[in-house]
Amino acid sequence: MTNILDLQNVATQVRRDIVRMTNAVNSGHPGGSLGCTEFMTALFFDIMEHDPSNFTMDGKNSDMFFMSNGHITPVLYSVMARCGYFPVKELSTFRVFGTRLQGHPSTEHGLPGIRMASGSLGQGLSVAIGAAIAKKMDNESNIVYTLHGDGELEEGQIWEAAMYAGAKKVDNLIATIDCNGQQIDGTTDEVLSLGDLKAKWEAFGWTVVELENGNDMQQMLDAFRLAKSFVGKGKPIVILMKTEMGYGVDFMQGTNKYHGVAPSNDELAKALAQLEETLGDY
């Protein structure tokens, strides 16, 4: 799907799913999910080579994606369902007892599309490196993608992985950092300033792609295509993607208030009024 309007329509519906899913169980993480909606939509509907109707755990001859910031399952599950990994109606079971749509991604419940549990932050980059090395060993040319929160970069394991991938030239790996500048206790500057991320990743041997507005679908696609052009060139690639937490719903935007807080019924009504039902609600 390369038509930009089609992708934007998907993104709008995904945003409706996100606020409805989190409201329904009065829990979950809508803020980061709304901010990463363009990323997830572009990746799953356009950029990634994958076959949602035929998921395999080993991902042979397929691109792979690992969501390291596993708390933003609302956007993950919505996009996965909307592109065909599982029935859209199953989104109504999000976080409900007995569901395959666990609060954080889990393999134990057999949801197609999930290869690894995540949510304990800082671990997905290492996992992706392992998957990427395996693809090289098996002479597969596919790409491994990851997504991380910027606050997640405070975890030390990220930098172990960054050092490894740079030193060992894991160049079939595209990591993306969601730079929304927010974390639970405040802004990233208030909690633990991340400093010059471009300089840090370059110093670790990565090619850095800067994305000024990760909530602009065209810019998102351009950043992915630029990143893909660096695959196989001897360095892992990282996209530093600026987004706004809560993007697309005016009162949720640019604040960390909705990091892990669901919209109330009144707030849901206000949010849905701003988001057209493009593909049909679940």
């Binding site: 290492s126 996992v127 392992g130 998957a131 990427a132 090395i133 693809k135 060993m137 992985a161 050092m163």
Partner: peptide, 26 residues
């Protein structure tokens, strides 16, 4: 040698890499 991975002094990353490798049947 082609099946040996030196991770350096970074055990957490090593465990993650191992889990990622296992996906493909390694």
């Amino acid at each position: 040698p082609e099946r040996f991975i030196q991770c350096g002094i970074a055990e957490a990353n090593m465990v993650g890499i191992a889990a990622g490798l296992s996906l493909s049947g390694k």
